[in-house]
Amino acid sequence: MASQGTKRSYEQMETDGERQNATEIRASVGKMIDGIGRFYIQMCTELKLSDYEGRLIQNSLTIERMVLSAFDERRNKYLEEHPSAGKDPKKTGGPIYKRVDRKWMRELVLYDKEEIRRIWRQANNGDDATAGLTHMMIWHSNLNDTTYQRTRALVRTGMDPRMCSLMQGSTLPRRSGAAGAAVKGVGTMVMELIRMIKRGINDRNFWRGENGRKTRSAYERMCNILKGKFQTAAQRAMMDQVRESRNPGNAEIEDLIFLARSALILRGSVAHKSCLPACVYGPAVASGYDFEKEGYSLVGIDPFKLLQNSQVYSLIRPNENPAHKSQLVWMACNSAAFEDLRVLSFIRGTKVSPRGKLSTRGVQIASNENMDAMESSTLELRSRYWAIRTRSGGNTNQQRASAGQISVQPAFSVQRNLPFDKPTIMAAFTGNTEGRTSDMRAEIIRMMEGAKPEEMSFQGRGVFELSDERAANPIVPSFDMSNEGSYFFGDNAEEYDN
């Protein structure tokens, strides 16, 4: 993207840094990872977990959730003011799984939030270390993106479920800051804005008074975040219109849905970061690795190297396929839920299948599930090659597409044709070009129609051997075009429920 120079890199967003050079960025990201790792080690000690239990991804998720809940100030305040039966607002906890007599047992633990905050700050040299908290939120978000298709949420806001490739980060909490905003897809931002506008339509006082002023500035800020994701002048001009509207209503909703559809071809720039579970960072720190000293990046080879040398386990339900569970977590670790499966298959070195073909449910185990038949197995999170994460949407291309997802959002900077089903997408653009945004709409449609099938995206960008740390010898991959490109292809993934 041309304006790259004016933006802070995501590592800076990730670490609240002012302008830093590459070495400083690597050190501050490393410091953040160190903090998460030290916190995780301490929690495993508190909970008396064995090494194996500490490497269980379900335990990692519970521990991450506990610290996120302990620092969720708004919710904590709300819980104190609106006490609900049987919930102690000062405590947080969740299921911890232990191996007892050759069987997995679930144990519900409860801790004072104050105590968890103390352990977290102690692991982070006394700081609140917001960057580390956001990092864990993005890992949870990436896992949700890989596990669930947001059909219901899309339909509720009037969008087409086939636009799911635009929904990265749709389950990120509001408090995820600049680093969170960077990884949100165009569809996620559109959905947040539509929800806001709908509230304004239904509630006369939404934009009024002292609160209304705050609401208005939040609305304009979200519009600017979305505008910054678009790469064409016409899309940005249309966002200006939406932002400046005196009284946002149905016309703005129409414009936003139009823009979301246009992003299936004229893709937005959305950041991709490899955020790993805390149970990967903990053992690495415990083994003596100093992330701050060595430096770390979320968008280069580092996460690949770390996963190459990590042992992570997962509980497996009786009829689940461990290899499929591994694929789910591998995609989440690489922030690749909406990437082209052919690119992923090449990088991973084994075939990556669409969601609907995987015999696996989510990673988390519900409290009512029976533990008797639970097994555990090693997650295979290694890769054959590594590639640089991208934040450009890439230019655009036609490809055989599917009944489910009709476009992709690249996660890796790797040369390819970008699949999208042009006739299906263009069919949504018939007729409606009147109104105050008509010239911009016409211009956007013209650009979409001009998108050429034979153009290559990320020209000359390749993948790298894991021994090639400096990215000196790019390998331009070859793809098996007979395979499906979309992950949520004609899909039956479970729906995400809060």
Rank of each mutant, 00 (worst) to 15 (best):
Q149I: 10
G35R: 07
S297K: 09
A387F: 09
R38Q: 13
S310N: 07
G132A: 11
L306T: 14
M448Y: 02
K305Q: 14
R99T: 14
R361G: 08
E469G: 11
Y289W: 07
K98V: 10
D72H: 05
E454H: 05
L381W: 03
D34K: 00
K113Y: 06
A123S: 14
H272Y: 03
S345N: 12
F71A: 13
G169T: 07
R204K: 09
D127V: 14
L154A: 01
E434D: 01
Y10P: 06
R106F: 05
G212C: 09
E434W: 06
A284R: 15
V186S: 01
F230L: 15
M136H: 06
C333P: 02
S413L: 09
K98D: 01
F489K: 03
E73M: 05
T151G: 07
A284N: 04
C164V: 15
L379D: 02
A427R: 05
L172E: 05
E455R: 12
I201F: 04
W120F: 13
Q364D: 00
R355D: 10
T147E: 08
I475Q: 01
L264N: 06
G356I: 09
Q42L: 03
R152L: 03
R174S: 02
T146Y: 07
Q149C: 09
M189F: 02
E53M: 10
N473D: 00
R389W: 11
R267M: 03
D128P: 12
S165E: 02
N21C: 11
E11R: 10
I194S: 05
N483Q: 08
L133A: 10
M1N: 10
L264S: 03
E484I: 14
R208W: 05
L256D: 00
N124C: 12
E380M: 08
Q20D: 00
G394Q: 07
A263G: 12
K214I: 13
E465K: 01
N368A: 06
M238P: 02
R355N: 10
N205I: 13
F464T: 08
E73F: 13
Q42S: 07
N124Y: 14
Q308Y: 00
N59E: 07
L68A: 10
K357M: 11
G404F: 13
D240M: 04
V414L: 14
G431S: 10
G180W: 10
E53N: 06
S413H: 04
Y97M: 01
I406A: 13
L49P: 11
N498H: 10
K293R: 13
R150N: 02
R99Y: 13
G485V: 12
P248T: 14
A234F: 03
F412T: 00
S467C: 13
V463Y: 13
A286H: 10
A387R: 03
F71L: 07
A493Y: 14
F230E: 14
Q4G: 02
L166V: 03
V414C: 15
A411R: 04
M163K: 03
R26A: 13
E469M: 08
V67M: 14
F346E: 11
L344S: 13
R221W: 10
A471W: 00
I57R: 09
F429I: 06
D145C: 10
S165W: 00
R156N: 03
Q364R: 01
V299A: 05
T147I: 14
I197T: 15
Q405G: 05
F206I: 04
R470M: 09
L79K: 06
I257W: 09
Q235F: 07
R416Y: 02
N368Q: 12
E81L: 11
I425G: 00
C279M: 07
I265C: 13
A336E: 00
L256M: 13
E192H: 02
Y97T: 05
N124E: 11
K198Y: 08
E11W: 13
T433N: 00
E434V: 12
H324D: 12
S176E: 05
N21E: 15
S392C: 07
P95L: 03
S359D: 00
Y97D: 05
S274F: 06
P89R: 02
A27T: 10
C223R: 03
D160T: 08
N247V: 03
Y148A: 05
R446N: 08
A123E: 07
S377Q: 01
R391A: 02
N124G: 14
N144H: 02
I25M: 15
K357H: 08
M481G: 12
D128F: 14
E107Y: 05
Q409S: 14
Q327N: 14
Q149N: 04
G187T: 06
R150Q: 09
E64Q: 01
R461Q: 13
A237R: 07
R106N: 08
T188E: 11
S486C: 06
P83C: 12
V414W: 00
N59D: 14
P277D: 08
L143A: 05
R389S: 04
S353A: 12
R26Y: 09
K229S: 07
F420R: 01
V299T: 06
L379V: 13
T350G: 15
S482D: 15
K273I: 07
D372T: 09
E380T: 03
G30A: 15
L56I: 12
V186P: 06
F429S: 02
D240F: 02
M43Y: 08
Q42C: 12
L193H: 00
F71T: 08
M440D: 14
N144M: 14
L466E: 00
V299M: 14
S407Q: 12
F420M: 12
I316W: 01
S170D: 12
R213H: 01
N250Y: 03
T130M: 13
A271T: 01
V363D: 10
S377I: 08
C223T: 05
L466M: 14
Q398P: 00
T92D: 06
L259R: 03
S467D: 06
Q42V: 06
A153T: 13
E73H: 05
A218W: 08
L226V: 12
Y219C: 08
E469Q: 14
R150A: 06
F412D: 01
D290A: 07
K227W: 09
G485Y: 15
A182M: 08
R213S: 05
D101P: 14
A332I: 08
C333T: 12
T390L: 02
I316P: 07
M239A: 15
I388S: 07
G169C: 06
L193R: 00
E11I: 10
Q398R: 15
I444S: 03
M196I: 13
D72V: 08
E80G: 07
S392R: 05
Q399H: 15
M167G: 13
Y296L: 04
A472W: 13
L110D: 10
N432G: 03
K90P: 00
S141K: 06
E210F: 11
H140A: 08
S84M: 12
P354T: 06
A493F: 05
E73T: 15
V100R: 11
G212P: 06
F458H: 11
S359T: 11
K351E: 07
R342E: 07
R55L: 14
F206P: 05
K227L: 09
R106G: 07
Q168Y: 05
K357E: 14
G431Y: 15
S359W: 09
L259Y: 01
L418I: 13
V242P: 03
V270I: 13
M13G: 06
L341R: 05
E220Q: 14
D497T: 11
K214C: 04
M163F: 09
L56F: 04
P173S: 12
K90Y: 03
Q308E: 01
S50C: 07
T378L: 06
S486Q: 03
N498G: 08
Q308S: 02
K198W: 03
Y97Q: 13
A85G: 13
A85E: 05
R261Q: 13
N124M: 11
G295V: 06
R243A: 08
R348L: 06
A471Y: 15
E380Y: 10
A237I: 01
M66D: 11
F304T: 13
N417C: 03
F230I: 02
N21W: 03
P83G: 10
C279P: 05
Y10T: 09
A123F: 03
G158Q: 09
G30E: 09
Y496V: 13
R150S: 11
R99Q: 09
A218H: 05
W139S: 05
Q405S: 11
V463K: 02
N417D: 03
L193K: 08
R389D: 06
T62K: 01
R26H: 09
Q12D: 01
K452N: 14
G200C: 04
K229Y: 04
S482P: 00
